[in-house]
C-alpha cells in the first residue's frame, strides 16, 4: 500500500527577481510498512518535498496524495484535519513546548483533536514508556538531553497512531549514540504494516536503517538505490 505519493511536484518560492523554482517536477512514493530515506546534498529540496508531501506547504504544481486523499482537492481546514489525524511530525529542532512536561508534549496531537490535556497526557504514558522515557514523564524539555527530547518528539508523532510519520533530519542535532537510539526506535515504528515512515536526511551514517533509499539532487528525485545491508546500523560511528 502506498501511504503517500508525489507526482511531478513543482515548488516555486517568491524571490527578489521573480519566483525561484526549488522542485522541478519531483516524484516519490512512500509505501506503508517500511522506512523510506530521502537523501541528497544540502539545499537540494528535501525539506521542501517533505513539507509538500505532508500537507504543510501547498505545491505550485503536481499531485500529492496522502492515504488516498488528493491534497489539491482539500481546502485548508480539511488539510489541517488530515495532518492532525493521519500524519506524525518529527523535526530536527524537536519543537517541544518548553513549559509542558514530556507527557504533556507527547499528548499535544490528542489535545488538538479535542481531548483534555490531563486525559491526553495519561494516554501518552505508554508510548513514552515504550520509547524508554518512563522515568521522565514529568520532566520539562530543558531537563532532558537532546536524544531524550527527540524521543519525546517521536512519542508526540506516534501518540495519535498516524499512518504516515515524516521526519526531517531527526538525527542532525544528536550525537552518534543518541542518533543510533532514535533510529532504532524509528525503524521499529516503521515495522508496523499499516504505517509508513519517511525520513529526510543528509546524514549518511543512518543509511543502514532504511528499507528504501531515494536520492534527490537539484529539486529532482533521481531514483532508488539499494540500502546497505540492514543490520549495519549506524555505520562505523557507534561504540556503546
Amino acid at each position: 500500500m502506498i501511504a503517500a505519493s508525489a507526482r511531478d511536484v513543482v515548488m516555486e518560492f517568491a524571490g527578489g527577481d521573480g519566483p525561484v523554482r526549488v522542485l522541478h517536477g519531483a516524484s516519490l512514493e512512500v509505501p506503508a510498512g517500511g522506512l523510506t530515506l530521502l537523501v541528497g546534498p544540502s539545499g537540494c529540496g528535501k525539506t521542501t518535498l517533505l513539507s509538500v508531501l505532508s500537507g504543510t506547504l501547498a505545491a505550485t504544481a503536481g499531485e500529492v496524495e496522502v492515504m488516498g486523499e488528493r491534497l489539491s482537492a482539500l481546502d485548508d481546514a480539511a488539510r489541517v484535519r488530515l495532518r492532525r489525524r493521519r500524519i506524525g511530525f518529527i523535526f530536527q529542532q524537536y519543537n517541544l513546548l518548553p513549559s509542558l512536561t514530556a507527557a504533556e508534549n507527547a499528548a499535544i496531537p490528542l489535545v488538538t483533536a479535542g481531548m483534555k490535556l490531563s486525559e491526553a497526557s495519561r494516554r501518552a504514558v505508554p508510548v513514552l514508556q515504550r520509547l524508554g522515557l518512563g522515568a521522565h514523564l514529568d520532566r520539562l524539555p530543558r531537563q532532558l538531553s537532546g536524544g531524550q527530547q527527540q524521543r519525546v518528539a517521536i512519542a508526540r508523532a506516534l501518540v495519535h497512531e498516524p499512518s504516515l510519520v515524516v521526519c526531517d533530519e531527526p538525527t542532525a542535532a544528536l550525537d552518534a549514540k543518541a542518533g543510533h537510539t532514535v533510529m532504532e526506535l524509528l525503524r521499529s515504528v516503521a515495522a508496523a504494516p499499516d504505517r509508513a515512515v519517511l525520513i529526510v536526511t543528509h546524514d549518511s551514517r543512518i543509511h543502514g536503517f532504511a528499507d528504501r533509499i531515494v536520492e534527490m539532487e537539484d529539486g529532482r528525485v533521481l531514483g532508488e538505490r539499494p540500502p546497505p545491508s540492514r543490520n549495519d546500523g549506524y555505520q562505523g560511528a557507534v561504540h556503546d
Partner: peptide, 16 residues
C-alpha cells in the same frame, strides 16, 4: 511563533 507554528503543523487550526 515557532511554538505556534509547530502546533499548526501538528494539526492545530487557526481557530484553536
Amino acid at each position: 511563533l515557532r511554538q505556534f507554528g509547530a502546533l499548526k503543523a501538528i494539526g492545530a487550526t487557526n481557530g484553536q
